[in-house]
Design a protein around this nucleic acid. Structure first.
Lengths: 329, 329
DNA sequence: ATGAAAGCGCTAACAA
DNA sequence: TTGTTAGCGCTTTCAT
């Protein structure tokens, strides 16, 4: 690898290591002439600074981490994550910051992961899949690791936060369904331990005025099917179901059809997250897109600012758009 | 953060830094007694070795990288990637190796990314989305960065490789369709620059004996729709279409229906990669699952071995399974 | 505007 | 089995 070091470049350019360092970082005035010499030498020797040496000297890893504590199945089900990461990356790339990804299972593993990160691996972290009373929030606060919360967190924290309004699209869909004459509207939520699931469910309950037709799913197709079956077995079955993700919605749609119901005539269905396939189904699925890449970009920018010592801020990325498609009309 | 260093722990335990280091790494015999003292001191001071200092001293970053050169849209479309990463992680976690993710666009950016990685950021890389005559293969060879190729590469290289047999499932689907009486079977491929797309297309051409009904798509829904429209407009339209991913298959299915065709009676359709939604569509989509997590695990293991200096090996992970569902029967 | 030298926190010879 | 001593390759005071 990089067998050539800054010393080689310094020698080649006829200057000292300090000059080479500053010529590249711009941390102090350098004459155009020597700067050119240094750059030429670096180019000639094909040299680039060693990230690990730099990290040690500056006490900065130039890397941030995303720790994912999810079941493998849920990871594969998720259309949010890849696009989110792409957004994060696009911002990190500007400052040559690396993205560390860690998939862990179990609280112990997750704690260990954060501990290791803190010790010279990463300068900050992005926290996804927030839960109510999430232990990670105080834990990371304790560690002193700059962190950005992605998702609406319901308690005061000293962390920066990227929020979206999960309630608005729920209200919008319900209003739409009501206008179309629906009176028994059900909701299959995600795990209520997640703040975003909870926020959507709460918006539903408030709009409907009750939770009689609320069922808790877990974002998997299996739960979409089961909860739908329960709802359809009710004496007075719902005429519309609003799901908290597309996977459950499609599983539900599929089940309803198997029971002889026509979509949307007998049962209107809407999803959430707007999976890339949803617009192409028959009927096309009504869903809510949320521009995960934009949220990724916002989160990365906030984290960068935090690392540089800025005051924590909450940024609202309001990019939820309801796409009304055939499954609700 | 880690304001406490190995020196503090050494003092606390009444030994030297070297002893502390070895007590943790096990790199030389340590008496149980001192080892216990060291561990206790480390625990008490809540100390863990700094990864950046360690990286500098050992010339090993304890990290491997995945560089993704893809359009954002294709990333979001892809059901392979998240599961693959989860598999990679499960193996890396065993050795506390971090995963660096880099999403780049453009060859320049990708070259820069690899250069930076080589300079103390990562010990190795996983190469995805291989293309025929991929410039990255000789480039990485040049850089001397241990690399594992994920996907069937068609040229001899000095790199380890995780292969799958893309041809077998194609043959199996075609045989199945023929047995059901289909004679005009079409194929909508992915970009033929990708080795896996090409391998599938080649298997198709060989089984069919011609490429009259072969169309090149790009894995997006839009291309699935367009290519399908072309095929259905043919004087003698195909009675079955085999797509190289599920996104295109579903877009095609949707289009065919809009033209009044019944699936599978008028047109049989099969996909590839078995998106998590595919089994839940109506009709359920015939597709090929490929256990991305298993491939991720294999790739990570090979890379680890490479980094430790093992001979490059090619491992065949044969996990392609065709799921025949309603869309083909 | 540049040079000299002291670390950053760890590992790894080399000794004992 | 343990201690001593150099580095790893960079950044960053402090001088000049």
């Amino acid at each position: 690898m990089s067998r050539t070091t800054i010393a080689d470049v310094a020698r080649e350019a006829g200057v000292t290591k300090a000059t080479v360092s500053h010529a590249l970082s711009g941390n102090r005035p350098i004459s155009e002439e020597t700067k050119a010499k240094v750059l030429a030498a670096a180019e000639k020797l094909n040299w680039a600074p060693s990230q690990s040496a730099r990290a040690l000297a500056t006490r900065r890893a130039n890397a941030v981490a995303v720790v994912l504590a999810r079941d493998p199945e849920v990871i594969a089900n998720d259309s949010f994550f890849p696009a989110f990461i792409a957004g994060v990356e696009s911002v990190l790339a500007e400052t040559e910051t690396a993205l560390l990804l860690q998939v862990v299972s179990g609280r112990d593993a997750e704690e260990r992961a954060y501990r290791t990160l803190t010790h010279g691996r990463a300068d900050g972290a992005l926290l996804l899949d927030l839960r109510t009373d999430d232990w990670r929030v105080p834990f990371l606060d304790d560690l002193g690791l700059p962190t950005v919360l992605v998702g609406t967190y319901d308690q005061p924290t000293g962390f920066s936060c990227v929020r979206t309004d999960d309630a608005a699209p729920v209200r919008e869909i319900i209003a739409h369904l009501r206008a179309a004459g629906h009176e028994r509207i059900a909701h299959v939520s995600g795990p209520l331990a997640y703040v975003h699931s909870k926020a959507r469910a709460a918006a539903y309950v408030e709009a409907i005025g009750g939770d009689e037709l609320l069922r808790e799913g877990d974002f998997t197709a299996a739960s979409g099917r089961t909860r739908t079956a329960e709802l359809l077995a009710l004496p007075e079955r719902p005429t519309a179901i609003l799901y908290s993700n597309d996977t459950m919605a499609i599983a539900g749609l599929s089940y309803a059809r198997s029971q002889g119901l026509a979509i949307p005539q007998d049962l209107a269905i809407s999803g959430f997250d707007d999976d890339h396939l949803s617009a192409h189904l028959s009927p096309a699925l009504t869903s809510v897109s949320s521009d995960p890449a934009a949220r990724g970009r916002a989160a990365a920018r906030l984290l960068r600012a935090d690392i540089l010592g800025a005051q924590p801020r909450t940024e609202i990325v309001d990019c939820n758009v309801v796409h009304f498609r055939d499954s609700t009309s």
